[in-house]
Design a binder for these strands. Structure first.
Length: 409
DNA sequence: TCTGGGGTCCTAGGACCC
DNA sequence: TCTGGGGTCCTAGGACCC
């Protein structure tokens, strides 16, 4: 019997991911104030406009790097709704930041270049860098398009220098394959690894041990803990608690009393760097949804036809997502956002699992009837939950299927 | 001139059953 | 007639994350 090695968990975060992917195509934009957000990207439109405005040559999709900087659209020319998903450092100098409305950002930094989001492209590079990691360290947890947790514990060499050697190998391999840089934190658990990955941005590595808790973690503001959001942070500050160290100094019972049994106890553990969540490599989706914010607020009666079309399109989009990914669901719901930003949801569970657009549209329509539409609408969404993979569904309902368990379980 | 889209998880009350 | 719990499912809202 050999002793179990101590857990070493890495959190890897791609550096300014969306902007960096754009720079691979448009290196001429490096160093400029730039924001990404707003309307969806269509590179063909860009090429068409180039050919119209610069007819002295024929432009193709090979020419992205040659597009003159002057040609790119500016923030001040953008009209419409939307928020910033990424702002480069030169843009941040002007007070522009992610999640900020584009209209407000345009006032702060009108000359910034604005690129629309190109999720398809970001997803392509996402798959690529995750593939590289997987070949080196197979136990990976997906945390969205630009982040993963990696369990170093059982990887050969994963313990060397606290994980630094393996982190460096992964960084180098990702850069060689994609031209993109990332930052990696390695720690005894996910909670600390997530914080560590922020310590040496960009293109950095940070190693954190249990003994570093007081020195490196406790001076940080509570908000740095993944799971403490704006509400919890404000409430903590109301009690004079600003740093993780101050949080750690609170009695567990006191936290439970003020934040609830579950969240209070978690706060106490988190402040002491305790976290035993495993790195989860596979998970089934719980729900799928599509939602859209209208270009202008719509009235339930006055804009009835337009709303009906959008509603049907959303139902069809969710249905297509379900079918493409092989799922059906039996809880169909809607989400509305009114012009005053109030959000209302309604859902209904039906007897039969479905991924049929007409059925989803029908149930969603019934949900809509239960809402008092006394204000203009800003957003409409359709959601399908209580999902089951289609293959399990076939097994459940097909009596001839030999895999069907006769007496449950 | 504010404020996207796609998710997860938790809480809390009521229905319903044993 | 009154008085229980526990368990599960459904629904609505909200916090939080990327």
């Amino acid at each position: 019997m050999t002793a179990t090695p101590p857990r070493r968990i890495a959190h890897l975060d791609m550096d300014a991911f969306y902007a960096s992917v754009e720079w691979l195509r448009y290196p001429q934009l490096k160093g400029l104030p730039m924001v990404i957000g707003g309307s969806r990207h269509n590179p063909d439109q860009l090429i068409a406009r180039l050919n119209a405005e610069y007819p002295e040559r024929v432009w193709t999709t090979q020419d992205f790097a040659r597009i003159p900087v002057d040609f790119f659209p500016r923030l001040k020319d953008y009209v419409g709704r939307g928020v910033i998903t990424t702002a480069t450092y030169p843009a941040r100098q002007f007070g522009v930041g992610s999640a900020m409305g584009l209209m407000k950002a345009a006032r702060l930094c009108p000359q910034a270049i604005r690129l629309p989001v190109d999720f398809e492209q970001y997803r392509r590079f996402s798959r690529q860098f995750k593939q590289v990691i997987q070949e080196i360290a197979p136990v990976i947890e997906d945390r969205g398009v630009d982040e993963v947790y990696i369990d170093f514990t059982a990887v050969p060499g994963g313990q060397r220098e606290g994980g630094r050697a393996l982190a460096w190998l992964i960084q180098k391999s990702i850069f060689n394959a994609t031209g993109l840089t990332c930052s990696i934190g390695v720690a005894p658990n996910k909670l600390l690894a997530k914080m560590a990955s922020e310590f040496n941005k960009p293109n950095g590595i940070s190693i954190v041990h249990e003994s570093d808790l007081e020195r490196l973690i406790w001076p940080l503001p509570c908000r740095k803990i993944n799971g403490i959001g704006p509400k919890a942070d404000a409430k903590l500050q109301g009690h004079g608690i600003r740093t993780i160290g101050e949080l750690a100094a609170q009695e567990r019972a006191w936290l439970v009393q003020h934040f609830g049994k579950s969240y209070g106890a978690w706060l106490h553990d988190a402040a002491h760097g305790r976290d035993d969540r495993p790195v989860v490599t596979e998970s089934e989706p719980v729900s799928m949804s599509r939602e859209t914010t209208f270009e202008r607020d719509l009235h339930a009666v006055h804009d009835r036809a337009e709303l009906g079309t959008i509603f049907t399109n959303l139902a069809e989009a969710v249905a297509a997502d379900l079918q493409r990914k092989g799922y059906a669901g039996k809880t169909i719901g809607i989400k509305l956002r009114f012009d005053d930003f109030r959000i209302v949801t309604r859902d209904q569970t039906v007897a039969e699992y479905t991924s049929d657009p007409r059925r989803i549209r029908q149930i969603a329509g019934q949900c809509l009837k239960r809402v008092i539409l006394d204000r203009r609408l800003r957003l409409l969404g359709v959601r399908v939950g209580s999902l089951l993979p289609t293959q399990d569904l076939a097994r459940q309902t097909d009596p001839d299927n030999p895999e069907l368990p006769l007496f449950g379980g």
